[in-house]
């Protein structure tokens, strides 16, 4: 770990999947106060990993410790209450609710004043302020991702799980989003796990990287020491 010796998240022997299928096959990882990128080809298990960490998928084995406490057996809502913010790749907003209400739902937990938190989100994503009464289901792809991210930030998370936040977005939005990841990290000091397909952009903002391959950690190292050759091996190309 680059910036702190005490990991905020410790994962040991993590096994999970869907029904009888095991996707993650005994994963170990430690995440500190940093941006931790998770790369890998389609089907490598990135989305499964983040959904499992958010406790939306039951564990098949292994343990998850968050801020020193075992959270493996906790339901999703209690894990969120302890400071894990999750931004899913798809369906990340409540389509029937307005932008304002989506942020309110995110702000139902957290200690600070809701309006103060919402002002910070609108400061980070000014476009959302202008759309506050609009239904989330009518937003563009980029606006939806901003809202999903803003809604997770309303929880005042200690760890933010971002699942391919730029998938399917135009290059303009992609650049903007990675800039926002930097800004969130710089201004809030929140730890971030960023699952991404866009390796170049992800490596530019991350401190460390893990490359997943067929549900196993192919490598975990500092971004500066990752070579193209190793990355290609992880992607099996």
């Amino acid at each position: 770990m680059s910036e702190t010796a005490t990991p905020i998240l410790e994962v040991r022997g993590l096994r999970s999947g869907y029904g009888g299928v095991t996707v993650l096959k005994g994963l170990d990882m430690d995440v500190g106060n940093e941006v931790f990128a998770v790369l890998g080809a389609n089907g490598a298990g990135k989305t499964t990993l983040l959904a499992t960490l958010a406790r939306l998928i039951p564990l098949q084995g292994g343990t998850i410790r968050f801020r020193g406490n075992e959270v493996s057996g906790l339901p999703a809502f209690e894990t969120a209450g302890r400071g894990v913010g999750y931004v899913p790749q798809e369906k990340g907003v409540f389509a029937d609710l307005s932008v304002f209400e989506n942020l309110c739902v995110g702000g139902m937990i957290g200690q600070r004043d809701r309006d103060e938190r919402m002002a910070e989100v609108f400061g980070l994503f000014p476009d959302l302020a202008a759309l506050r009464t609009q239904l989330a289901g009518t937003l563009s792809g980029g606006e939806s991702r901003m809202l999903a991210c803003g809604r997770a930030l309303m929880q005042d998370p200690k760890l933010l799980l971002l699942d391919e936040p730029t998938a399917g977005l135009s290059p303009l939005y992609v650049d903007m989003f990675f800039e926002k990841v930097r800004e969130i990290r710089a201004t809030r000091g929140v730890s971030i796990i960023l699952a991404e397909q866009n390796a170049t952009k992800a490596l530019a903002v991350a401190d460390r990287v893990m490359v997943l391959s067929l549900g196993e950690a192919f490598l975990t190292e500092e971004t500066g020491s990752l070579t193209t050759e190793k990355l290609k091996q992880g992607y099996r190309i």
Binding site: A80, Y86, A95, D96, C104, V105
Partner: peptide
Amino acid sequence: SPYGRLLVAVGSNEPLARSLGKPT
């Protein structure tokens, strides 16, 4: 009310509501 908002959230996307700390 916030309760109505929560009901719509649960109906609209229950896993997401759970991931936001709501005991759905």
